[in-house]
Simulated scan of single mutants.
Amino acid sequence: MKAAPEAQRRLLDLQAVDTALAQLAHRRKSLPELAEIDAVAREISALEDERVRAQVVVDDLDRDISRLEKDIEQVRLRKDKDQKRLDAGGSLREVEGLQHELATLNRRQSELEDAELELMEQRETAEATLTEVQGRISAAVARRSEAERKRDETYQEITKEQEFKTAARVPLAADLPADLVTLYDKIRTESGLGAALFRAGRCGGCRIELYGADLNRVKSAPADEVVRCEECRRIMVRTSESGL
C-alpha cells in the first residue's frame, strides 16, 4: 500500500487518540471503586445472613417469653379464684386443699417468673447482638454508597474525556486516505495498536529491533510505502527518529 509520508506520520496522532480512548475504556472497567462495591456487596450479603440469624434468636425468645407470660397469667387467675374461694370459707378439708393448691401455685408462679427473667436477660443479649449487626450493615451500606458516588463521578469525567477524544478523532481520520485508515483500524482491532513509530531501528509496536535483511527492507522501502513489521504486522511509521 502507498500513502504519503505525512499521512503516515499523522497515523501516529490518530493512534495517540485511540490509545487514550483505550486507556479510558480500561480505566472505566478497572476503577478501584468497582472492586470495593463488589467486596462490600458480599460483606452486606453475609451480614444480612447474620442479621437474619440474630433476628430469629430474638423472635424465638419473644415467643418463649410470651408463652411464659400467658402461663404466669393463668397461674395468677387460678390463684385469684382459689383465694376468693378460701376467703369465702368452707369445711376444714376444703380450706386445707385450697391452701395446699395456693402454695403449689405460688411455687409454680415463682418458677415461671424466674424462667421468664432468664429469658429476658437472654433476649437483652440477643437484641444487643442484633443491633450490633444492624449497625455494621448500616456502615457497610454507607461505604457502598460512597464508593458508588465516587464511581459515578469518575464515570462522568471519563465520559466527558471520551466524548472529547472521539470528537477529535473524527477530523483526524477523515483527513487521511480511506484505505490507510481501513488497514490501520483492522490492525488496531486485532492487536490494540494499529501504527507505531519506527525508532532507532526498533518497531514501536512489539519493541523488536531489526537487523540485516529486515532492516535493509525498511531502509530501501520508498518513502510513500506503508511498511509493516514482520513480527507484529503493525504499521511502522518512519520519521527522522527512525535512524535510517
Results as ranks from 00 to 15, higher is better:
R76P: 00
E161S: 09
L172M: 13
I65C: 03
R67H: 08
V227P: 02
D80M: 14
S138W: 07
S191E: 10
R93L: 03
Q55W: 03
E116R: 15
G212E: 09
E6A: 12
R207F: 10
R217K: 15
C229P: 07
L112G: 13
Q8H: 10
I235A: 01
T239F: 11
R93A: 01
S240F: 12
K219T: 03
I187A: 04
L183P: 01
A167N: 06
L180F: 07
E69W: 07
E36P: 04
I137Q: 02
A41G: 09
Q162Y: 01
K165T: 03
D175W: 05
A88Y: 11
R107D: 13
R10F: 05
T182F: 04
E121D: 07
K150N: 06
R149K: 06
E124P: 01
A46W: 01
L172R: 02
A7L: 05
Q15F: 01
R63Q: 09
L31T: 06
A196Y: 02
L105S: 12
G205L: 07
A88R: 15
D152R: 11
T131C: 02
Q162W: 01
R10C: 02
E111I: 01
A88N: 15
A168S: 14
L21P: 02
V95K: 12
L215H: 09
E43I: 08
E36F: 04
E209K: 15
E225D: 13
Y155C: 11
G205I: 04
S138Y: 04
A140R: 03
R217Q: 13
E69G: 10
V227N: 05
Q55G: 11
V95R: 13
V141T: 14
